[in-house]
Nucleic acid binder design. Structure first.
Lengths: 257, 257
DNA sequence: TGTGGGCTTGAATCGGGTTCAAAAAGCGGA
DNA sequence: TCCGCTTTTTGAACCCGATTCAAGCCCACA
């Protein structure tokens, strides 16, 4: 309606579209050829722009990587939004959060590697401040889901009232357990060296031990395989029917377009 | 005694000494200027050798980094050797393992960053096979200590007999928890964004929850701050008197010389 | 249709890891 | 001690890819 502004407006839209294109293509490249396969000039050429144009959007290669990670983090975080509302006990919903993350990581190995690489001090240092903030922001829905579930568990008496520990700090346990297990599982040859297999099964069992240790009801024996397996299946079924779950080992597509 | 061999022998010794020199200086460089501060040609010049000579020892920069990590890992792993023999209950000895690791990481932040960077797929791919094996091997005493403590706990009835979980798999829980918390604690600005502070205190509490969840006696309420603090202090005191401990928050020196 | 400022371009620059031909050093035998 | 031969060392040159920036282009506005 305002012709004066519209041109400037269109420019911004075009600029955003171009940025999205760069991010999308960069992600493809990484998926196909790995992190090393991503080269700034090649990427620019792929998108039919000059190298310099790419640098209009991203201060550095690392900055671009952070943008890719933020995009995928937003997608990942979205999956957690519906979890607090699921028809499950609070403890099972907490498990649902863990399972959702496991499944996402399993289906997006490149995303996992990317974030691991990004938070490396050397790399992180080259990410611009707005990009960092953006990436942190993108993960917020996850912590909100955790917060909601923990708070409700306390309200309902499933979890003893806090003495000194906030909701976030409570969620920190499973979070660290998850992150750590991902790290170990992905370090080539590490767990093999100790003859440990199926790390995610162990993650689930240790998760139950952790929750039981905090007296989150209904307590469940982490060393009773059939109970653990049954609970996992039950929660996975609910996730699937809510459209959050993942078809078992079929590689879920990610292309947003 | 065999003059024929002695020359060859001396050569090997000299070569090893030179390698040690490279590793030592590389570590200094990293400590002082960070990972980026380590440049192959500068390092060689520092040691008064040509760049090419450095490449006689290390296939690549990454290979050198792995060697540095292996050296420090050996030092770190050494600290765990005496833990199974401490005059403490099995559960407290398990805590001793966790505390020892926390303290080591706190005193060697560069070591933590280095390993985090190393296991990154991109980097790990450029580490030679023998070097990888060496690094894995260097950590073995740690898993041996864990194995010993878990096995004894089962023998003594502190921990219920295993149904389906090996000693290593039991240790995997605290291990992953540790690794994960280190990651989170070191990701610049991450925990701050969620208003979480003193991550290592939380690590200790979640560790207790985890152990209690596995019914490792004596069970201990992770949300009773004074009990947790007391236990931590008690175990730290034993560690200190065994010469393993670390003077509280005074930055312990690491320079081996 | 003219023009000025902002955008795009891509060749040049830069930085560091890695290589390798030449030089030096070490070796055993004469 | 000297001599060929082998092994090791040397460091300048090479390579690769991220980043820069001077030159030219384009478009809005007059």
């Amino acid at each position: 309606m305002l012709p004066v502004m519209s041109t400037e407006d269109r420019k911004r839209r075009e600029r955003e579209a171009r940025e999205a294109l760069f991010i999308e293509r960069a992600h493809e490249r990484i998926r196909e050829d790995g992190l090393l396969g991503l080269q700034m000039s090649k990427l620019a050429a792929d998108c039919e722009y000059a190298t310099g144009t790419l640098y209009q959007h991203f201060e550095s290669r690392e900055d671009l990587l952070a943008a890719v990670a933020a995009r995928t983090t937003r997608e990942r975080a979205g999956r957690f939004r519906a979890i607090p509302g699921l028809a499950l006990g609070t403890r099972s919903r907490m498990l649902a959060i863990v399972l959702t993350d496991i499944d996402f990581a399993a289906n997006n190995p490149d995303y996992y590697r990317l974030t691991q690489y990004l938070v490396t001090e050397v790399v992180w240092a080259n990410v611009s401040a707005p990009r960092r903030a953006d990436l942190l922001e993108a993960g917020r829905p996850i912590s909100e889901a955790v917060h909601a579930v923990v708070a409700e568990a306390r309200d309902q008496g499933d979890l003893p009232p806090a003495r000194e520990i906030s909701e976030e700090e409570m969620g920190l346990g499973p979070w660290a357990l998850n992150v750590g297990m991902q790290s170990l599982a992905n370090a080539q040859g590490l767990l093999d060296a100790y003859d440990i297999h199926r790390p995610y099964d162990h993650l689930i069992r240790h998760f139950h031990a952790l929750m039981t240790g905090w007296r989150w009801e209904p307590r469940l024996d982490p060393d009773d395989p059939s109970v653990v397996r049954g609970e996992t299946e039950r929660v996975r079924a609910v996730l699937r029917s809510a459209g959050i779950g993942v078809e078992p080992p079929e590689r879920g597509r990610t292309t947003a377009e």
